[in-house]
Amino acid sequence: MKRVTPFHAVLLVALVASTAALGLGILAAREMPVRVSVGEHKLRMSIAGDGSPTVVLETFGPAYLETWNRIQPELARFARVVSYDHAGYWASEPGPKPRDATQIARELHTALHKANLPPPYVLAGYSFGGPYTRVFASLYPDEVVGMVFVDPTQEGFMAMLNEQFPDMSVVTEADRLEQYEWGMQWPSMNQAREARLPTVPMTLITGARTHDVLSRKLLPLWQAEHAKWLSQFPQARHIVTTNSGHGVVFTEPELIINAVREVIAVRQDITRQRR
């Protein structure tokens, strides 16, 4: 038998590495987010899983779609899930201004249809994604069958914050003139306030963990605003977690996954009962 030489070892390593590279390349290409054309510009979207309804993950523009990385793969086990970068942020091209909630909701709606993701939708909005999903639901009430709010921004709280702590979350005149999402916060919150939501299963998660004096002072007001707003919807469920703060999507992904799972289950029960 011929002796194994170092060249054979190099050859073996080369073969194994090339084969592994091919596998990894294919996997990476399959899992990479795609860009979907929305008129003049393209949005980067990550689509995973199968089935209906489609879970749409929404957050504030500066947060990229990878924010949902701990949640999206788990949701994809039982539903089709989509997350995306807002126009003008990360890998999505800039879109028409003003970048307010209505514009964002319309753009998302177009993107979902262009990506062959037909309704019904379950919307999950994190932080400022809360107001955005509310505007989306009011614009397309027949297409939304469930909503999950993850520590959402409430206009009442923001108004109080603006009054009592004017140095926090300052939107300058320059920001307003630029008409990006940061500068359009107040118009977006006004649109969310006026939004009429459909009667669908709804869950709101509040991150009640505090990490400093300021957050201890503000948390009761934040929580109260959540409870006050949610009281309009008798079918809604309020979950308060003391294990997480505002970063609940990173620290307690299972809480959000379960909330979405329950909203989908309730919706399926309702559909069955109607039949």
Binding site: A21, L22, L24, G25, I26, A28, A29, M32, R35, K42, R44, G61, P62, Y64, G88, Y89, W90, A91, S92, E93, P94, E178, Y180, W182
Partner: peptide
């Protein structure tokens, strides 16, 4: 600061990376 959050110009190149790196 918004500029720091944008890399849509380079995304087409990133999209080719699986093929290029393999």
């Amino acid at each position: 600061p918004d500029q720091q959050l944008r890399f849509y110009h380079v995304w087409p190149a990133i999209a080719w990376l699986p093929l290029i790196l393999t």
